[in-house]
């Protein structure tokens, strides 16, 4: 296992594009999640120009335990960058035909796929660690009075976040294996949510939609999004889902297994 991960990391760590994309990912992710208060100030400033005043101190964006879900939801928006990296990594293997040479040299096709999946696990873990550090740091800075009884309320979102990133990277890997060309794969990846939305809108607009509306949660990308619900509506005094729903986790895990299984099937059957 570790050996396979080392093989893929060996390919990546001397690849400049890998460092540039990962660097940009962690920089933008880090700065965005850490500068929420500045953004709030900016919003307050802008709205005061229009005569509305917002007391940003009453929005506990960075207060434990709100901070967990808030920052994790924001971080989820950035996973597309990592997914593009995954697409480049897998489509390169097709473009350079190195997948073929790897198999000739003695990797089984399943081992090859494992090496890519393990890198996805690693990237997801590093994302979790990164957000965990930023959350703890900013949380301790901004929370006026830490109530330890509620401190870990919502910390399970880290597990959901891990599944969210890993599921999406698995999806990107599968697209790469199926399409094999980087440009086309990246465009498809970008449009995935849109395409799924189009399908859903057309499927569920009819009157019978109320009966099958519950099917929506089973859509692959929707299932990934459902892991961490949008938290900010709570500051407009709306009810939100502030917990990780077990069915959502199960559906997303199911898709993750399927994505990787489809990659495996495709790899196994094709002449490379």
């Amino acid at each position: 296992m570790l050996h396979l991960l080392q093989i893929d990391l060996k390919k990546m760590t001397s690849y400049r594009t890998f460092w540039v994309i990962c660097g940009l990912y962690f920089l933008t992710l880090g700065f965005t999640t850490a500068s929420g208060m500045e953004i709030l100030k900016w919003i307050a400033n802008k709205s005061s120009e229009f005569g509305a005043s917002i007391n940003i101190n009453r929005i506990p964006l960075y207060h434990f335990p709100d901070i967990w879900q808030n920052l994790i939801w924001i971080s989820g928006l950035f996973k597309i960058v990592l997914a593009v990296m995954v697409v480049i990594s897998i489509t390169n293997e097709y473009q350079y035909r190195t997948l073929r040479q790897n198999v000739i040299d003695g990797l089984s096709r399943w081992e090859f796929l494992q090496s890519k999946i393990l890198t996805n696990v690693l990237l997801s873990l590093v994302s979790v660690v990164m957000i965990l550090s930023i959350t703890l740091l900013t949380g301790f800075i901004y929370t006026p009075k830490i109530e330890w009884d509620f401190f870990f309320f919502g910390a399970e979102f880290f597990l959901a976040y891990f599944i969210e990133v890993f599921a999406f990277l698995s999806y990107a890997l599968m697209l790469g294996v199926l399409v094999q060309r980087s440009g086309l794969t990246i465009v498809l990846l970008m449009l995935s949510h849109m395409i799924e939305a189009i399908i859903k809108v057309n499927l569920f607009r009819e009157s019978w939609s109320t009966q099958i509306g519950w099917l929506q949660q089973f859509f692959p990308l929707e299932s990934i999004t459902n892991l961490v619900p949008l938290p900010f509506a709570r500051y407009a005094l709306q009810e939100i889902k502030d917990y990780v729903s077990i069915p959502a986790v199960l559906i997303a895990l199911g898709w993750t297994v399927l994505f990787n299984y489809f990659s495996y099937l495709k790899l196994k059957k094709s002449d490379i």
Partner: peptide
């Protein structure tokens, strides 16, 4: 067939792995 962005040495290291 090799990784174009890797040196000859690194490519061989990968083969050896």
């Amino acid at each position: 067939i090799f990784y174009p962005y890797l040196s000859g040495q690194k490519n061989l290291e990968l083969n050896a792995m």
